[in-house]
Design a protein around this nucleic acid. Structure first.
Lengths: 349, 349
DNA sequence: CTGAAAGCGCTAACAG
DNA sequence: CTGTTAGCGCTTTCAG
């Protein structure tokens, strides 16, 4: 078998130097290309490297260079499709710049998040991308940002003054509400995620403002968690009310999917008797039945943007703070439609 | 502000030693708890640690201990819900044992996979969990397994003799086929993922064997990729055939979802005119319309099992090789039903 | 163009 | 119970 195909972990730069009859410094330089080496000796070194299957020990390198070429990501949950996309976008960009990513799932728990942050600090990651948990430790995150490049993504933490990439939640909710009102809905409710999350708050605000701007009153607003199950429960409660809403706006697609489920269980047709509007436009929105109308907010692009910001900051720590807001757009599908002609009974005014 | 809340990256064990008036050895020992330290001095050291916001540099520690407490995972794609769950299962287990995970998306490309493997080797991960890409470099992976603990997950590579956790694809497909046959289907087709993947091959084999065991002939078998789009295309082709299948079995849920889409576009009702059967039972299977009947193969459990095997192997590198096959089970939902009464024309025999 | 040597921050003998 | 010290494997001056 070709020895060069092997990656021997045991062999060190010293072994290579001995085998090639040069100093370790020279080996280091041919490996890193940091300075010119006479072609003849370079070849000798490379031959020895191949022969021995030498793989430079990056932890040693990290120690001397005091950079690890790794970035830490802490996000709520990889299994959430929005964050899976976000991670994918970020890691693609990061890898292109030769960073490796380590990550942790916070489950939206401040305690777990805190643990990852110190873990990553101890591992001397070069930078971090964080989608803060609910009730995140804003002080810790701010301090962190003073010690190494940190970009917050999707969610903000109170008092954060560093780099940031978020969706424009207010604009997005305005899109959703305007669409529904344009279709003739007047009884519009909101089911939402954790109030502790900046996204949930911003979306509720956007919802309320858009409604107010059109002079219609919110019929109901509730919150819970950004999950299918919570969406189902919140929608159940709303559909039990009388008069019930003709449209439900959801804080994200998972909630909307849960809403669809509730409507189905309760025997309400969508969009016939109830319109349901999602947010995020995850891949599964278009597979639901009916296919979900949603406000698109591409996780991949958001993650990629965060990575780009981080990479820039890593290159130039003193550059100006950047805040990018990803513009949302409306994706029309079949879960929304004009409300059924109101029966005299169910419409108050 | 409380200095102890800060994680200063600049301060070293030496700084702490000086501040506490002890030696670095002592500080090291109170940090690691490796040996007894007189309470009084321990307190002094801890005070200094808090005071200075000292965070041990794990890269230095890794260098001296020659272990990094990190494991590498290379999987096809985080954004694939099955693998997202698998990752989640693995990282939960790994974190509980104080490992951090670094990961890479191979996109089923052997070249990308190869790059991650050497990257992780160079970073001296303690072990790896790999879901091999299509046409993975079996030699490289085998060599890898001789150098450090590696567990293969979901897919096998030719000649692999190390730890392994996979689903029992043959049994799973038998479940699917038996269900369909039990419902009266005789014209059953298979749409499948990449033939280069062991899972695709095993599922096809299982499909064919189960059919043969019941004395029914496969009506069509095609392959492509384990994706929604490929499922749509393959199903389109099959539904254009005459006579067409009364049931389509899919190599995974993504394919089945694509199949549902194709049926919808072509105007075939499911399960009225066509039954569709998934595999994996990802979270979105139950959100599809109709809700997808599927063979359950829990990604979370598979990932967790792989992590457990790896952790054991890390503890005892010389232990016996372990191979665990996760038993699949049938999840009955609404995408399958007995075939419509055959018209005289379309049924040959 | 190349070699020697001083660290990077920590651990783990070893010696008290 | 505590201090000293020799590395871990590599990078990077500083001299040649």
């Amino acid at each position: 078998m070709d020895a060069s195909a092997r990656a021997k972990r045991g062999t060190t730069i010293k072994d290579v130097a001995d085998a090639a009859g040069v100093s370790v410094g020279t080996v280091s330089h041919v490996v890193s290309g940091a300075r010119q080496v006479r072609p003849a000796t370079r070849d000798r070194v490379n031959a020895a490297i191949a022969e021995l299957g030498f793989r430079p020990n990056r932890v040693a390198r990290s120690l001397t260079r005091s950079r690890t070429s790794t970035v830490g990501m802490v996000i709520p949950d990889v299994a959430n499709p929005f964050f899976a996309q976000l991670i994918r976008g970020a890691s693609d960009a990061l890898e292109a710049s030769d960073y490796v990513v380590v990550f942790g799932n916070s489950d939206n728990l401040a305690t777990k998040e805190r643990r990852y942050l110190v873990e990553f600090i101890e591992r001397r990651v070069d930078g971090m991308i964080i989608a803060p948990a609910a009730n995140a430790d804003a002080d810790q995150i701010r301090d962190l940002g003073e010690q190494l490049p940190v970009v917050l993504v999707d969610r903000v933490t109170p008092g954060w003054l560093g780099d940031l990439v978020v969706g424009d939640d207010q604009a997005g909710m305005a899109l959703a509400v305007d669409h529904l009102i344009g279709q003739g809905h007047r009884r519009i409710a909101l089911i939402n995620g954790e109030e502790e999350l900046s996204t949930a708050r911003a979306r509720r605000l956007g919802f309320e403002q858009a409604l107010r701007a059109r002079d219609v009153a919110a019929v109901a607003v509730s919150d819970g968690a950004f999950s299918i199950e919570s969406g189902r429960e919140q929608a159940m409660a709303m559909l039990a009310a009388d008069p019930r809403p003709t449209a439900i706006c959801a804080g994200n697609d998972l909630l909307a999917l849960g809403g669809l489920q509730a409507a189905h269980e309760l025997g309400f047709s969508v969009p016939g008797q109830l319109s349901v509007m999602g947010y995020d436009d995850i891949a599964y929105a278009k597979l639901a039945s009916p296919r979900l109308t949603s406000v698109s907010q591409p996780g991949y692009a958001i993650g990629a943007a965060a990575a780009r910001l981080l990479i820039e900051r890593l290159r130039d720590p003193s550059g100006a703070r950047q805040e990018v807001a990803i513009r949302p757009s409306l994706i029309l599908r079949e879960s929304t439609a004009p409300p059924a002609r109101p029966s005299a009974v169910s419409l108050g005014q």
